[in-house]
Design a protein around this nucleic acid. Sequence first.
RNA 1: GCGGGUGUGGUGAAAUUGGUAGACACGCUAGACUUAGGAUCUAGUGCCGCGAGGCAUGGGGGUUCGAGUCCCUCCACCCGCACCA
Length: 941
Amino acid sequence: MEYNFQQIEKAAKEFWQEQQVYKVSNESSKPKYYVLDMFPYPSGAGLHVGHPLGYIASDIFARYKVMKGFNVLHPMGFDAFGLPAEQYALETGQHPAVTTEKNIARYKEQLNNIGFNYDWTREVRTSDAKYYKWTQWIFVQLFQSWFNRKTQKAEKIESLMELFNKEGNASNPAPGDDTLSFTAEEWNLKNEAEQRAVLMQYRLAYLDHAEVWWCEALGTVLANDEVVNGVSERGGYPVEKKKLSQWFLRITEFADRLIDSLNNLEWSEAMKEMQRNWIGKSEGASVKFHLSPAISKGEEDASGVIEVFTTRPDTIFGVDFMVLAPEHELVNEITTAAQQAEVEKYVAYVKSRSERERQAEKKISGCFTGAYVVHPFTGKEIPVWISEYVLAGYGTGSIMAVPAGDDRDHAFAKHFNIPVTNIFGDLYNGEAAVSDKNVTIQNSEFISGLSVKEAAAKVLAALEEIGIGTRKINYRLRDAGFSRQRYWGEPFPVVYKGNVPYIINEAGANLPEAMQQLPLELPHVENYKPGPEGEGPLANIADWVMVTNNDGEILKRETNTMPGYAGSSWYFLRYMDNGNEETFASQNATDYWNQVDLYIGGTEHAVGHLLYSRMWTKALSDLGFLSFDEPFKRLVNQGMIGGSSRLVYRISGTNKFVSAGLKDNYTCDEIHVDVNIVDGVQLDIERFRQWREEYANAEFLLEDGKYICGSLLEKMSKRYYNVVNPDDVVAEYGADTFRMYEMFLGPIDVSKPWDTKGIEGVHRFIKKFWRLFNDEQTGWKVTDETPIDAELKVLHKTIQKIESDTERFSFNTAVSQFMICVNDLMDLKCNKRAILEPLVQLICPYAPHIAEELWKQLGNEGSIIHAPFPQWESKYTVENTKVYPVAINGKSRTELEFDLDADPAFVEKEVLANPVILKWLDGKEPKKFIYVKGRMINVVI
RNA sequence: GCGGGUGUGGUGAAAUUGGUAGACACGCUAGACUUAGGAUCUAGUGCCGCGAGGCAUGGGGGUUCGAGUCCCUCCACCCGCACCA
């Protein structure tokens, strides 16, 4: 019987479907294990062979854990809201719900084709109202919470209101506005709107004003990466910044916890570093420098201060000048009349430069303002400059420049001839700043001779004493924008009474009962054009936007929608209990499944999704809804699969193509050709002629009768014609071959190119595996003979290797081991059930379809999915002799076999009597004899 | 610039604690079977050399009886952040 994968795989899939073998229960006496794949966005392009890499790995691991006796949750669902569907709707008029549905159906078909063990009864879709009801609900929880810095936890907003009642906000400054200060009496005198305005400065989901890119010509708001060089990427229209009222998540309050708890996660160091860098915590001091009244613009500014943030307070005696960002609000105030013209000119110059220009050419530029500040310790006057190298958005937008200790400050000082104060003694040579932190501070009054750390502490104490400095921690992380001016996303369950936002079920809104319920469904629209003034398309539906409450007041709904990461920040929780209508997931379910034990996905979500999910989990945990505060215990990053493009060479100006080996003789144009009409590097000329009309009459210059293409490694992308669809590969070789080949390509975390040709080796292996059981002519050939030791040894060594390789995600070497095993059994002509049956169980996680078929042929009832993973026995894997490599001076020269417990003196005698060794000794006495038991033997001469 | 990672045959890659470098495949070469071969099977395949042998894990240096693996140094490439005070 021949290996007919189409038939075998179809039958296996139908059997799984019928028997519901992948259905997972929340009730089990087995230990649990949660394997999660990253949430796919169902794009119109479908999957290419790079996408399933991680899915295959997680599927293998999930199946392995099942066979090892775990209750395994391995779900799949779709991140179904998002911009591309809306963009497509704008272009074609098709409703996003329709195209999304279609794309999901296609994705599911492609996924099922590969034979994954998903429990589809747990599928979730973010665009489903039953799902986004809970996305909205979590938003409400965040709105009704604040972050208590003392407990480092999210708490209900009521606990904050109680504190205000008792003591004002003295001990709980507002994260949204640190100048806000009031007493209990003042709090109680505020009316509802005023109180709510205060609370807004604390809420974890809050409303603030933020700038977006507004494009008048397109009538829409653009994302940062849709704006290139100050114009829209599409169409090249001018864009301007527009201030809109937008929702934010106060993720910055969680910054410390997000950094600290990284230590308990099994993530790659690279991933953790990316998160740490993104959060960008730096510890230092905030220092206020008083403007010098003598030179400042007028006496009335005498009390003005420039506040800076520095991580090096120890260098304060090396401050030679101050630098403000050109956009800094003080610039106008402090500039002297004499410098006015020059400063204006410089500010105008900076404004004319785009972000890109500023980043591309880093020439030194700046301008003196004419103002001075006073050094807090020496009383020296320090000039204040402006320069674009200081960023308005980081710290306070101003720095104290220490040229002796900072490269940029040093370059600036040299460029403008500002004298440099040396605070590092001989270490500073006048040519380059000393950025080393392992130094002794000198020439610095009360901190001279101290280390950086000691000096910093002393300076801080001194600054605090005179009241102009405090210890300060600064973060690069910004609060996350949570509003999108789009249609295809979750609507906010928010109404505005005047300018004051209320959740639809808050008493203050006083909406009719029926309007207070979640979900607030996304209304159907007929067109997806943006609303007026940068608002989302929902703003166009007047009768949806305007609602009348029980007091007869007209309230306005929020017309923005939530961003893509809203739904994906908590989807892993919904899988645990996706049908629940009472809560996002029952406490029982979340307690049982707990953290995701293994999360596999790409690095592209390093600082977006993975950071937001962590914050949401922490908040939900703090508020008592979850018993864990980190979502993903172990994270494995899959590498990308690159495309291997194929090129043909057309002699310029002709329709004649030359084979790669001859192309250097002509002037040629390189043209990408569809990889699917090339076998390896050999072009299928007929299909090429059919590929495009213009090539129908193409001529060819061949080598050895073949047209050989050039090849190039690039991203797998439509525009390079190098996209390989898994469906095609599965149709030609079967899903089992495809799965094993993807794993065989190399380590899971390394990026590598796709090479369709290489799959044949794996396909041959599967066929050989099949032939251990079935002969193409004579049929079934498995016998019940008793296996010999050599066969048992092959089996048990393979079990041992597959187990350890699977445990450490070394799937490529596991596939190799299967190949070695089959080659060995072929050589041994082994067709014995006692060997082959455990082998079928062993390969089941990797090649589930063929395993299911052979399991049946072996006469077993039920699915192999429920069979255990085989156990290896050490009596078959432990050797009692060893073929030792025998080396002379570390170079192997021969091999000799000894018992593992051989007497060293005996070994030495035998080795030194060996003819090969004698030849190398050439009559000399060995200087040293090294015998490492079980490893090797080395003779030193 | 900073941080992280990777450099091994023509290609994808193995080598788990310092112990036979290149397992397993692709490709290539030769052969067998065959109407045919893009099926299957056999043998060979790091480089130099007729051979003995020598040289080989990005380059250079070191530790060691022994280094792809450890240390120092330089180089190249990839990823992330990027005038972050």
